[in-house]
Design a protein around this nucleic acid. Structure first.
Lengths: 194, 194
DNA sequence: AACATATTTGGACACTTGTAAAACTTATAA
DNA sequence: TTATAAGTTTTACAAGTGTCCAAATATGTT
């Protein structure tokens, strides 16, 4: 990303960032990512191409920023000091509701971008990274059997596995069932499991 | 892929396929995938661009073919009729030795392509699909708690997690330790586990 | 309102991409 | 040998990509 998100953006920069990302979301709901060109994004957003490249390296970079916008809500309302079991279920639920709240958008995107497309992989990978980060911060898991990194990744993988089944593969799994699956696959590793 | 791999290729086609894939492997050991162009591949291989497009859709398609070449060995010497536990360890070992046998190539590729690049994700994803296929065929796992697809994917994820740690993140993990981790993370789901 | 500083803009550039159609080369079978 | 089919090469095209620059414009102080 060319633009520095850490400094607070000017009003103009806000307009530009919002315009490009909105256009990307709109286009993704209409056609496949590979058929979206920077030219098209700029024409629709009514900005010259040079401006696009002032902010983003390429269309993948803009996509990343879009996922960032989508998923940044997940960081809100964090409550540390939970047991591993609770934080596992809590993070799962938080991500579940995040995805639920963008369900229509996801549904439209899936109409134009097949499950095995690079777009969907990219989205999954982004979300997994977010979950990994949060786990890494809030999952306190003591053992000397296996490196903690591996356990964190294992947990993230499993959470994503179930969320992908629900929100990407569109399998009719209730939240209750999801919890059951999660416990079946990871329960043995979690404090306070039955 | 434009070229039909199911029919047996003519001598000329063999030469062409091998030439393009060899060039790709050589280039990957020299520079990053994103900086490799179809033009470059064709110049080095000494084929006109149109010939490239007779065989492949784009450079990603050739890359896929390269992974296919690398990983097709994994299908050899299949021995069904094993317990889940055995087939889990067996498939792990088979993939472990496959990756070991291409260790120098992988090492060179990693020098030019960062762990979080799309190239490496692409390779991981390809390998994961291969493992999923094999598991799906040979892992007999009976339970009515969780859909079998989810369990197969969970197993594949975990196998890949450890293999990535060893061969991509280059962590010094012995085969024995790898088995211990595998058992720690998945042992409870496998017949005959202690 | 005026200023120095930063950003945006439009145009140009060299390059890559994927497709299409016609011309050419082979190898093999009739 | 000739016919034929398959693959290969050539050439051209329309479009996209990412970078660069100098002029125009916006921004946040004073």
């Amino acid at each position: 990303m060319k633009y520095d998100l850490s400094k607070k953006p000017t009003r103009g920069a806000q307009r530009t960032l919002e315009s490009f990302s909105k256009t990307m979301f709109n286009l993704l709901a209409k056609k496949s990512f590979e058929n979206i060109s920077v030219n098209e994004i700029c024409e629709i957003s009514n900005f010259p191409r040079a401006t696009f490249y002032n902010y983003f390296d390429d269309k993948y970079d803009l996509l990343n920023y879009c996922w960032h916008l989508l998923s940044s809500q997940i960081y809100l309302n964090e409550q540390p000091n939970e047991t591993s079991e609770k934080s596992l279920a809590t993070l799962f639920d938080r991500t579940y509701y995040l995805l639920s709240s963008h369900n229509e958008l996801l549904s439209a995107i899936l109409k134009n971008n097949p499950l095995d497309s690079s777009l969907i992989s990219n989205f999954s990978a982004y979300l997994k990274r977010v979950i990994q980060e949060v786990f890494h911060e809030y999952l306190h898991f003591d053992n000397n059997e296996v490196p903690i990194e591996l356990v964190v990744d294992h947990f993230s993988n499993t959470v994503m596995l179930i969320l992908e089944a629900i929100f990407l593969k569109r399998q009719p799994i209730t939240l209750e069932e999801a919890h059951k699956y999660l416990n079946f696959l990871l329960g043995h590793l979690v404090e306070g499991s039955q």
